[in-house]
């Protein structure tokens, strides 16, 4: 089991915005997190990645209970075990593509390995972009780089927050295909949060989050 949530209450300050009695996700599952805007999808992903802390309940990722980790340990844990893809791509504009990917390795505490970086980019048809800066890439290319970055450390869990909301239909499907391919290729579990109904059919499992009252 990759994700095990019980009796979770999470939010900001002392105000809870999500509550979840129980959620278990098995290794290799592709889960869609659906729900209206403001229902707490992003908040839940933040809890899973250890960015936001819980108000109550237990969150266990890959066998590690997050509440037992210090802030620094949680940062390191996230770097090592969780791959993140954001709605907007968030490559660091001051660094070239290869340096963006190296940074992900450095921050995860694994040794820099240009072979892995090149391999990941080659799979996505981006090998020629190694020394370019993010501004020299198209939107779609940059998104593929972000996906490559999410998988290079072989995370147990890939969390994607609205990865498709800015994309047209064709690109939307291409991005989801890619996420699935990569998750499968690297043996990762995938959770995608969205209110984009276009991609619903692709997931074997859909979790709908109810607004917290």
């Amino acid at each position: 089991m990759v994700v095990d949530i019980r009796d979770l209450k999470a939010g900001y300050g002392t105000k809870a915005v999500v509550s979840l009695a129980s959620l278990q996700i098995e290794t290799g599952e592709h889960t869609l997190l659906l729900g209206p805007s403001g229902c707490g999808k992003t908040t839940l992903l933040n809890v899973l990645s250890g960015i936001a802390s819980t108000l109550a309940g237990r969150v266990v990722i890959n066998g590690t209970a997050l509440e037992t980790l210090s802030v620094g340990d949680r940062d390191r844990f996230r770097g090592k075990h969780i791959g993140l893809v954001m709605q907007r791509l968030h490559l660091i504009s001051a660094l070239t593509i290869s340096k963006n990917l190296r940074l992900a390795q450095q921050l995860a505490g694994v040794s820099v390995n240009d072979g892995i970086i090149l391999g990941a980019l080659e799979k996505l048809g981006l090998a020629a972009m190694l020394d370019r800066y993010p501004r020299e890439l198209s939107q779609g290319e940059a998104q593929r780089v972000a996906i490559a970055r999410a998988v290079i450390n072989r995370p147990a869990l890939i969390l994607a927050d609205e990865p498709t909301s800015a994309l047209d239909d064709a690109n939307c499907l291409a991005a989801i295909d890619l996420l699935f391919d990569q998750a499968t290729a690297y043996g990762a579990t995938l959770i995608v949060a969205t209110h984009d109904q276009r991609i619903k059919a692709r997931f074997e499992r859909v979790v709908t989050l109810e607004p917290y009252l």
Partner: peptide
């Protein structure tokens, strides 16, 4: 801001 958030998401500690 986005970069800062990203650094943290990629595993950088606040100290870093």
């Amino acid at each position: 801001r986005a970069d800062l958030a990203l650094l943290r998401l990629l595993g950088a500690s606040p100290a870093m």
